[in-house]
C-alpha cells in the first residue's frame, strides 16, 4: 500500500502552518511559545499544530506539564522530491478511484438484480 500523502499535503497547504514549521525548524517550542509569534488564539495555533502532527511534520513530546513541538525534517523529504511525491499522490488517488468505481458498479448490479 502506498503511504497516504494527504495529511502532509494538507499540513503544507497553509501559509501559517508553513511559517510555524519554519520556526520549529529553528528551535522546538511549546504551544504558548508558538502563539507569541502569531496574532491568533492559542486554540487556533493548537489546531494548526495538530494538522502538522497529523502530517508527520512535527514531533510532540511532553516536557513537564507542557508539550514541546519540534520539526520532523524526515517527513519533508518526499515533499522536496516533487516527482516521487506526485507519483505516490496519483497512485493513492487512482487506487481510491478504482475502489469508488467498483463500489458504484456493484451497487448498480445489485439494483439491477432486484
Amino acid at each position: 500500500m502506498p503511504p497516504n500523502l494527504q495529511p502532509v499535503f494538507r499540513a503544507l497547504g497553509d501559509p501559517t502552518r508553513r511559517d510555524i514549521l519554519r520556526m520549529l525548524g529553528q528551535e522546538p517550542m511549546t504551544i504558548a511559545e508558538v502563539s507569541e509569534h502569531f496574532d491568533m488564539t492559542r486554540a487556533a495555533v493548537k489546531k494548526h499544530l495538530v494538522m502538522l502532527s497529523d502530517g508527520g511534520l512535527i514531533n510532540v513530546e511532553p516536557r513537564g506539564r507542557e508539550k514541546v513541538n519540534s520539526l520532523n525534517a524526515a517527513a519533508l523529504k518526499p515533499v522536496f522530491e516533487w516527482l516521487s511525491w506526485f507519483d505516490k499522490f496519483w497512485d493513492d488517488r487512482l487506487d481510491a478511484l478504482k475502489t469508488a468505481i467498483e463500489k458504484d458498479q456493484s451497487h448498480d448490479t445489485g439494483r439491477n438484480n432486484d
Binding site: L12, R22, M23, G25, Q26, A73, A74, L76, K77, F80
Partner: peptide
C-alpha cells in the same frame, strides 16, 4: 518556491535532508 524561504530558515532542513 517551497524552498523560496531559504533565507527564512529552510536551509537547515535541506542540510538535514541531504544528510538522510
Amino acid at each position: 518556491g517551497l524552498v523560496m524561504a531559504l533565507d527564512k530558515g529552510w536551509h537547515g532542513f535541506l542540510s538535514n535532508l541531504h544528510g538522510m
